[in-house]
Design a protein around this nucleic acid. Structure first.
Lengths: 332, 332
DNA sequence: TTGGGTTGTGCACACGTGTGAATAATGCAA
DNA sequence: TTGCATTATTCACACGTGTGCACAACCCAA
């Protein structure tokens, strides 16, 4: 094992194994033309010197770096943080490295994206970026593979993986009706046309099929503070059951209900975040199945990077409902 | 602006400006030997073609990539997520790119670190990694610059930036005494010898100076569930004021106190996380000044990378106390 | 010995960039 | 014109790797 010394290059390995540098490269790549004997000699030498190939040089030669650019908005949002973590893990399994770029940057978005591209990333994964249009344009211009995760607005010809918000809405409708709720509300997010809208649609449709309807709809930004204000407004309408577009909204609603001391409606959140499991909340919530979603996202990114002419791929991940205490009562 | 075309190399720029490739390189680097006139011609040509230098090639040539490896444990911990976000932003300002590697990997830590090194990162920043010894050893072996953030155990000759837990403990002691508390408790974290211990020491020392002492100490792992259990034990001791090693512990304690309906002690947390600001908690908490901490961390990383023989640098960031409702009552 | 197949290795180039040394261009004095 | 100093530009190499092609070694048949 090398200590304190300079970088070990493939040349040193070749020297030690008394063989040419090309043979070292082929042996390590598993080229069948190399004989068993020499391959083992090479592997032994490489192990002895602690040789690790210089991936920058390899990237230059192969023009494929194994680096994936990941664009994310705000890591203070635990949902995004969790998604990023899973993404990085999945990428690790595929021997890819994430070059992460966070949206809230002082550097200026376009400038930062340029820099991302300069690193010759094999693909870009965008995870709910607010300046999404910049990312999309930058990738299309350079015809760089791009996968949107959980933020497909339908307009651009790019690959995307998302949760099936409509299906989730229907699941929730079924569940709440089975709890014998009668007066239903939807606590919408800021972006009434985006993901929040899909969820509302599925919820509304399924309720209609079951002979009910959404009686109240109120929307709020996705921040806790703003949500608390809207939550009080919501509570004045005295719904039996509220489907919230987000766990943050749901928690704000629970806190608001507690502080007023009135009757707490059945509450369902979305994202199944960490605090949904906390005993004080014990919140029934839609699980987006982030594990599968991230796996598919990485798979698609790899596929496009390998075969750039491939048509954009769009996948819907089926969500599931995690039932907890916040909907365990039945309305009498 | 290029569209759909192949990559633009410096060669194309040279061709368009009717000049040699070397001159392009120097002009863009601001070499004073290049005349004003040609420099501007080059800049115009580069802008017209949308030229962005290939940082992989540059990295190979200069053997400095501008990539910093960032090792982090668990992004589900909002504190770590926030720290990572700030780190990435600061790095962006310095034109550095973060190659992120998350601890909870299925790939195996050592293997992942090897891969990180293979990308020729200029330095490594480790943010509370559980397999820290692997990271340290890997960096020392290759004499790769390493900065530990918020996790220095004192044993190894590496640079580190951390919060001054002792000073924080003293701040808290002053504050709680000024609230006229008499029976003090410390809610410790799992790692009694690490950062939790520093905080406890400062707290204890200052209390002694003021004629008091820590009457109760109970420790728990840093997870909400485990903390709730320990919190009930803590409450049976009926302390006036509790200093918690962590916001998670503090919140678990508040929830536990609420669920039993007994008297709520004064509570101080640590990290000033998002939920400390939530109205239901409104938690007084120590702010580690992560903004400054991350700035310094990046600065040190750059300094060491530039000058590898430099002695390890260790800095303490002074924390501050954010007073909120959880300590606004005064004990009568 | 010659010829042809099979197998294993080495030479030399390319990826795109930065940079030291060499060279051309210009000015100025003799 | 020549000689010398200064300035602007180009040449050619290096960074560490992968790979097409040529080539050596070997066996076997004629």
């Amino acid at each position: 094992m090398q200590r304190e010394g300079k970088k070990v290059r493939s040349f040193e390995v070749a020297e030690l194994a008394q063989i040419s540098r090309s043979t070292v490269s082929r042996a390590l790549a598993g080229d069948p033309r190399i004989s068993k004997a020499t391959r083992e000699r090479v592997l032994a030498a490489a192990a002895e010197l602690g040789y690790q190939p210089n991936l920058i040089a390899r990237g230059l030669k192969n023009s494929t770096t194994g680096i994936i650019g990941v664009v994310v908005t705000d890591l203070n949002n635990p949902y995004h943080a969790h998604a990023l973590q899973l993404l990085i893990e999945k990428m690790g399994l595929k021997h890819l490295a994430p070059l992460v770029f966070v949206g809230n940057t002082a550097e200026g978005a376009e400038h930062a994206i340029e820099r991302l591209m300069s690193y010759q990333v094999d693909a870009v994964i965008a995870l709910a970026a607010p300046f999404l249009e910049h990312v999309i344009e930058a990738c299309l211009t350079r015809s760089k593979p791009l996968v949107l995760m959980n933020r497909y607005d339908g307009s651009e010809p790019v690959s995307a993986v998302g949760g099936d918000g409509g299906a989730a809405g229907r699941l929730v409708a079924d569940h709440l009706v089975s709890c014998r709720a009668r007066r239903f509300a939807f606590f919408a997010g800021e972006d009434r046309t985006g993901i929040s809208w899909e969820r509302e649609q599925g919820f509304s449709e399924r309720l209609k099929e079951l002979g009910h309807a959404i009686d109240v709809t109120i929307s709020a930004p996705y921040t806790y503070r703003a949500a608390v204000v809207a939550a009080h407004e919501m509570l004045r309408e005295e719904p039996d059951a509220v489907f919230c577009a987000n766990d943050t909204l749901a928690i704000a609603l629970m806190d608001a209900a507690r502080s007023t001391g009135g009757q707490m409606p059945l509450i369902v959140g979305y994202d199944n975040s960490t605090f949904a499991q906390w005993p004080i909340y014990d919140l029934t919530s839609v699980d987006q199945n982030l594990d599968e979603m991230t796996t598919r996202t990485v798979e698609i990114a790899i596929a496009i990077a390998r075969e750039p002419k491939r048509a954009p791929d769009r996948q819907m991940i089926q969500p599931s409902l995690v039932v907890r205490g916040s909907t365990s009562r039945t309305i009498k």
